[in-house]
Design a protein around this nucleic acid. Sequence first.
DNA 1: TATGAATGAGTCTTCATTCAT
DNA 2: GATGAATGAAGACTCATTCAT
Lengths: 219, 219, 219, 219
Amino acid sequence: MEKRAVKTKIKNEELIDRRRKQIIDGAIKVFTAKGFHKSTVREIAKEAGLTMGSLYNYIASKEDIIHIVYDYITRVLREEMSKAIAGIEDPEERLKAALYQNLNAVYKNQEIIMFIYKESASLDKKSLHTVLARETDYIELFEELLRERFKGQDVNEERLRLAADLLPYIPVIMTFRRWSLKRRFESMDNVMEGILDFVLKGIESIPEKMNALKNDERK
Amino acid sequence: MEKRAVKTKIKNEELIDRRRKQIIDGAIKVFTAKGFHKSTVREIAKEAGLTMGSLYNYIASKEDIIHIVYDYITRVLREEMSKAIAGIEDPEERLKAALYQNLNAVYKNQEIIMFIYKESASLDKKSLHTVLARETDYIELFEELLRERFKGQDVNEERLRLAADLLPYIPVIMTFRRWSLKRRFESMDNVMEGILDFVLKGIESIPEKMNALKNDERK
Amino acid sequence: MEKRAVKTKIKNEELIDRRRKQIIDGAIKVFTAKGFHKSTVREIAKEAGLTMGSLYNYIASKEDIIHIVYDYITRVLREEMSKAIAGIEDPEERLKAALYQNLNAVYKNQEIIMFIYKESASLDKKSLHTVLARETDYIELFEELLRERFKGQDVNEERLRLAADLLPYIPVIMTFRRWSLKRRFESMDNVMEGILDFVLKGIESIPEKMNALKNDERK
Amino acid sequence: MEKRAVKTKIKNEELIDRRRKQIIDGAIKVFTAKGFHKSTVREIAKEAGLTMGSLYNYIASKEDIIHIVYDYITRVLREEMSKAIAGIEDPEERLKAALYQNLNAVYKNQEIIMFIYKESASLDKKSLHTVLARETDYIELFEELLRERFKGQDVNEERLRLAADLLPYIPVIMTFRRWSLKRRFESMDNVMEGILDFVLKGIESIPEKMNALKNDERK
DNA sequence: TATGAATGAGTCTTCATTCAT
DNA sequence: GATGAATGAAGACTCATTCAT
């Protein structure tokens, strides 16, 4: 369990959890609609079904709201990912399941994920560090999955790590381009299938020793 | 050429261009350091070497500053891209050159590009539309390059379009992960080479008719 | 004895006294550290070992806390003064004992006395009146002591009263200047001895008819 | 000249001085009536004839207002004191003039001086240091005056310094007791004359080597 | 009596924008 | 055209007090 980083004036732990969930739900609505800076604490309180004063009994500053939202989202994503790959033994299938889960999760939570990427700038240095550490967990999972996938083969270590860095983010591009993609594709399922194929092909660059460019071609 | 979308009180066209360049340079400095909402017009004016009042002779609102910055950046990127692929005939090399140019441009302008992605939320709906249209230009360029690259082959049209949507954004992941990547890789050149290999492999999924998942495996 | 001026919801008198003492002790800690306005009722309650709600069973408002603290301090000071001069017959010694007791009491209770002087501004008009009446008691004691000290001599009545007004406050200057005095003097005993000498010399101006200034020297 | 410690957004120095004087005058009115914490910035702005926003162009925080008020008052007091003793050669008369000036100044500025004593608690540590340094200047003046007054005599150094610490503050007692004194005395001139006599007698304890108490009389 | 969560009016402070000179 | 002082609406946050349990 992680410690409660965000300070509160309330003692009743169960109440804290309940009110925080209200705050998270309210904040996600308001933040995804207007972004962090254009959202007022008053609006968030209202959407959470709390009064101003009551809200501030459960957080210490507006910034704290980003944190509890972030904590919530990343916890949900981690849990869903665990479930998605639980019990799958075959490395190839395990990797596919993870990629597919990631695609779906990003798609399902598009708005809040976009919000988090955009507002990571609103986080102070220390918080940003925590956030990046969380992402690192995620990336290490993909690193592990790739390593097992290519077990026994002669892989280029650097490429494997790079792929692990790329993989979890590629679905995010889908959210950046969602309006364009929706117009062009019959269904988002098709899009996800296409991304999966692209990625699965892409990782085939890991075991090879090929070089796309010769050094003298670059400036 | 497009009309001057941002209104001004000044008549002298040449002066407008000079002052706007000052504003753009100042704004980029301030925006990349603190983000749009935490930057004050005062700071931007100061960094631009203008007084408050003078600044407002060349823009009508703070929001306008994002627009002229965005105009500037996208124009520069378009011009550089044109130069990068000018004169290259071979479709494969032309595509590689474009990908490589994109990687370098994104890397070189990391901070301002991150800013633009993050603050696109600050744009009103109409402005957002303009912005997305610009991106569409870029994507259509890649679509065209891919089409020529696979000319004569039996391509999956949807996959080709999807790849065009993905390609320009993959380097952006590099900027999201820059701290992690810097720690792990000898040089960013290695990173870019790796991304290029990954992408070039990935697009090989375009001509094929493979299906990663059977439909019944998905929920 | 005076009536309970500060209203309470509680019937049990003994409990009231016990809880009030808790409040007084807690409040003195918090008030002397941060002043009245920067102290929150929450902090006082905590330091008093009470909950918010319980605290408000024994007082009606934050302002009441000043009152009960003030009551307490002045009662203690009066009692100590009574003890200090009890049984001393010789008027000169009696006066000295009173002056010395005052010096010690002010020194020992520096922080709370400073607090009371500073926060008398926080009292409403009526409360201020009560407070000043208390001080008047104290001053009348000194008036009486001086009158006995100069019994049989031809005193200037006005000067005697003025001295009675000055005497109890001179030690307060010591608390205003404590940091400077601590640096310059070996011990605070020396300081107190010096003040005593100064004051005892000063009151010699009471029987005389001297005039420091001629009227025409003043504007 | 001291540097401008309080930050401002305004460039025109002459305007700063004019507006600051307005702020000082407004603040003194409001502060003396209600104390620092009960005064709102809005009230001060209004009394100063400025809008909220304009006020904040000349100060950075509410606390700054105490500082500029304090600066102003102490500067005025210093200047008046300089004038009052200028040109007086005889040490005895010079000391009397200083004491009399101090009495008058404290009396004339009672309310603001009371305010300053009371609100010194509102100052942060660093500011308090500056304030105390100012007082030290004042005290050193009295030390100097006393030294000249007793030049050639065998003085007790400690007592001389102590007297210098006491002298400037004794008139402050007059302001603490003003209501009582006004009732009892024909005119405040009489009060001041009495204090002067008391003090002039008191300083006669400086050259002597007397001890008011024997050690065994104290606890 | 005790508890502590809820309340919301009140405060300081910021800053985009205007406009007289 | 340039200047920079003035404006005031808006927002984050605090905390004394109440009241249901």
